[in-house]
Amino acid sequence: MNEAGGRFPRSKRASARRHGLAALAAAALVLAGGARAAGPAIALTFDDLPAHGPLPAGETRAGIAEAIARAARAAGSPPLYGFVNGVQTEREPGSAAALAAWRAAGDPLGNHGWSHLGLSKIDPATFERELTRNAPLLADQRARWFRFPFLDEGADPARRDAARAILARHGYRIAAVTMSFGDYGWNEPYARCLARGDQAAIAGLERSFLAAARSALAQSRAAAQARYGRDIPYVLLMHAGAFDARMLPRLLDQYRRAGVRFTTLAAAERDPAYASDRDPRRPFDADALQHHLPSPEIAPEDAEYAGAGLASLCQ
């Protein structure tokens, strides 16, 4: 299961949309004209290593990890974090090779909980077991980053505070997310369409994937302007799936043409906007952008290849 339902709280969505029209127009002008405008910094991060989504015939998990790393380096991205669910090494034997490939590329690994369990569904003792069981798979124990599965930090303040205390005790920082376009949703339909040889459907998936990313960039920037009065360095959530790997070169080129520059997770989250999550000893900030991610808006012509339409595509 992926970073899905409940990830986009609605309390800030109306405000983000009011500010989003101007940002969308500006982004469209940059992309249409091919001009290089000064844009924001984005840190690329990937969840659900070593195995996310279906594995198309002829591909390997290590190959997906290697393709992601190649695309990131070609685009000038510094090292990018991959967040690990160790249970996948048991569910899919051989997938641990993806972790070795990730480390070989010089990219660090973070903790995403052993079984990818949302905090709302477990007690603090289980949360700590999930954290510590996963830890041996991480290469660098000096710089520990944790990302909540499903971005679920718990609705109950006592449970949330207990989890944050556990993270602080184990020396973790929280890897917050301030940009997402639901990339995970494209991986399953891509595998189905590829198996059927439906190239027209795959072309539609490619088009809608890039359109959703453009919308998310504009809307996260508008939401940051509304919340902070400025751009912040954004942390983009993606997943280590086959379609992500296929699309990453084109996605990063699209970002670069929009003036985006790439940065590291640590550099991005040194910004004051992330202070409450970077250090779990601080009080939880319910108003921070990472807790009110805006949803990307998809044009009607892409409806079949995005959102709810993905479930029935190539069935």
Rank of each mutant, 00 (worst) to 15 (best):
N2L: 08
A4V: 12
P9C: 03
R10G: 02
S11G: 09
S15R: 14
S15V: 14
A16W: 06
R17E: 15
R18S: 12
G20P: 06
A27P: 00
A27H: 07
L29S: 11
V30P: 03
A37Y: 03
A37I: 04
I42F: 14
I42Q: 08
A43Y: 06
A43F: 07
L44P: 02
T45R: 08
F46W: 14
P54N: 05
P56C: 04
A57E: 15
A57Y: 09
G58K: 00
A65V: 03
E66D: 14
A72T: 08
R73F: 03
A74S: 14
R91H: 08
P93S: 02
G94E: 06
L99S: 03
A100D: 15
A101Q: 10
W102R: 11
A104C: 11
N111H: 02
H112N: 05
G113K: 01
S115Y: 10
L119Q: 03
F127W: 13
E128H: 12
T132F: 06
R133Y: 12
Q141R: 15
A143N: 14
R147C: 00
G154M: 04
A158M: 10
A163S: 01
A163F: 00
Y172G: 02
V177E: 00
V177P: 02
F181P: 08
F181H: 15
F181W: 15
D183L: 00
G185Y: 10
W186T: 06
W186E: 02
E188S: 10
A191Q: 13
A191H: 11
C193K: 13
L194Q: 10
D198P: 04
F209R: 13
R214Y: 08
S220M: 08
A226E: 14
A226Q: 13
D231H: 08
D231G: 01
Y234S: 00
M238A: 14
A242L: 06
F243P: 12
R246D: 10
M247L: 15
L251F: 09
Q254P: 04
V260W: 07
V260H: 05
T264K: 05
T264I: 05
L265I: 08
A266D: 11
A266F: 01
E269H: 06
R270E: 15
D271W: 01
Y274F: 15
D277G: 05
D277N: 05
R278F: 12
R278I: 06
D279C: 03
R282G: 13
F284E: 11
D285L: 07
A286Y: 02
D287C: 06
H291V: 02
L293Y: 03
P294Q: 06
P296M: 09
E297V: 15
I298D: 10
P300Q: 04
A303D: 02
E304P: 09
Y305L: 01
G307T: 12
A311E: 14
L313A: 09
Q315M: 07
